[in-house]
C-alpha cells in the first residue's frame, strides 16, 4: 500500500467517523431529527448538491474544475419555463432544457480542450455568460404555472422514497462504477496525475474532457429542472453559489483539487456530512448563518487534518 492510498483511507476513515459523531450528536440533541420519515423528507434538499457533486468529482479528478454548474441550472430552468410558457408540452420543454445543458457543458469542454485554456478561466467566463443568458432571456422575472404531473417530479414518492433520491441512487452507482471500474475512469486519474504523460500515452484526452464537461452540464440542467419543479418556479437566480457548495463537498470527500486522487464514495460522504450539518443546524438552531460558518470550517479543517495525516504517513 502506497503512502497515497494510506492517506486516502485515513481521510475516508476520519470522514466516516465524523459522520457517525454527527448522527450520534443529532440523536442526542434532536431525537425526532434522525427519524427515518424526517430524514426521507429532508433528503430532497440534498438532491442538487449530490447530483452535481458526481460529475464534479470526475472533473476535479481529471485535473479540471467547473464553476459554471450553478449558472447552467438557472439557464436550463429558464429555457424549460420559457418553452412551456410559449405552449410547448412540459416534457418536450424538459428535454430541450437538458439538451441545452449538454450543449453548454460541451461548449465549456471544447474551450478547455481545443483552446487549452485553464478550466478555471473558461468556466468563470461561462458562469457569468450562462447566468447572464438566463437573466437576459427571462428578464430576471419568475416563471411559474407548471402542471401538477411536472411538480410531482420534484417531491413525489415512489417505492417509499422521493423520486429524485431514487434517481440519484442509480446515477451515483453508475458514476461510482464508471470512475473505479472502467478504463474511462482510469484515464481520468491518468489525466489528472499527469496530463502530458496521458497525451504521450495516446489517451483521447480532449474527447474525455469534452465528455466530462458535457456530463456536468447535463446533470446541472437536470438539477435545475428538479429544483424548478419543487418550487413550481423557474427563475434566473436558481443555483447561485451552488458551484462553491459542490466543490466544497467534493474536496471535503478527499478529492485532491490538483487532480489524480478522489472517489465517488468519498464525495457522497462529503455531501452527507454537509447536508446533515446544514439540516441539523437549521432544525435545531434556526440559524442559517451558522451553517455557513460550520461548512467552511469543516472544509478547511478537513484539508488541514489530511495534510497532517499525510505528513505523518510519509
Amino acid at each position: 500500500m502506497t503512502g497515497r492510498d494510506r492517506a486516502a483511507r485515513v481521510h475516508f476513515g476520519v470522514l466516516a467517523g465524523l459522520a457517525l459523531i454527527l448522527f450520534g450528536f443529532a440523536a442526542w440533541l434532536e431525537p425526532s431529527f434522525i427519524a427515518p420519515a424526517t430524514q426521507r423528507d429532508l433528503s430532497l434538499h440534498a438532491f442538487e448538491l449530490a447530483l452535481l457533486a458526481l460529475p464534479m468529482t470526475c472533473i476535479i479528478v481529471s485535473g479540471g474544475i467547473d464553476l459554471s454548474v450553478g449558472s447552467i441550472c438557472a439557464l436550463a430552468a429558464v429555457v424549460m419555463g420559457l418553452l412551456h410558457e410559449a405552449g410547448a408540452p412540459i416534457w418536450a420543454a424538459c428535454i430541450a432544457a437538458i439538451g441545452a445543458g449538454a450543449v453548454t457543458g460541451a461548449l465549456n469542454g471544447a474551450f478547455i480542450a481545443a483552446l487549452r485554456v485553464h478550466p478555471l478561466i473558461v468556466t468563470l467566463a461561462t458562469m457569468a455568460a450562462f447566468r447572464g443568458l438566463a437573466e437576459g432571456l427571462s428578464r430576471a422575472r419568475p416563471i411559474s404555472g407548471f402542471p401538477p404531473e411536472f411538480t410531482r417530479l420534484g417531491e413525489g414518492y415512489s417505492l417509499g422514497l422521493p423520486i429524485p433520491i431514487l434517481a440519484l441512487a442509480i446515477i451515483s452507482l453508475a458514476a461510482g462504477l464508471a470512475l473505479s471500474r472502467t478504463s474511462w475512469g482510469c484515464w481520468m486519474y491518468a489525466i489528472g496525475s499527469n496530463e502530458r504523460g496521458a497525451r504521450y500515452a495516446g489517451l483521447p484526452v480532449d474527447r474525455i474532457k469534452i465528455a466530462l464537461y458535457a456530463c456536468s452540464g447535463t446533470a446541472a440542467a437536470l438539477a435545475g429542472i428538479v429544483f424548478a419543479a419543487r418550487r413550481n418556479t423557474a427563475k434566473a437566480d436558481i443555483g447561485s453559489g451552488l458551484e462553491l457548495e459542490v466543490i466544497t463537498a467534493v474536496v471535503l470527500g478527499g478529492t485532491s483539487i490538483f487532480g489524480g486522487r478522489g472517489s465517488i464514495a468519498g464525495t457522497l460522504l462529503g455531501v452527507l456530512i454537509i447536508h446533515e450539518t446544514r439540516e441539523l443546524v437549521s432544525w435545531h438552531w434556526h440559524h442559517d448563518e451558522l451553517i455557513l460558518l460550520v461548512t467552511g470550517t469543516i472544509l478547511v479543517a478537513s484539508v488541514l487534518l489530511n495534510n497532517l495525516a499525510s505528513r505523518r504517513a510519509d
Binding site: 462553491l244 474536496v251 483539487i257 451553517i291 455557513l292 484539508v303
Partner: peptide, 18 residues
C-alpha cells in the same frame, strides 16, 4: 497549513459570510 489557496479561500469565503 499547506492548504491549496483556492480551497483555503473557498472555506474563508463561506466562513466570513457566516
Amino acid at each position: 497549513g499547506r492548504v491549496p489557496s483556492i480551497i483555503a479561500t473557498l472555506g474563508m469565503l463561506t466562513v466570513l459570510r457566516g
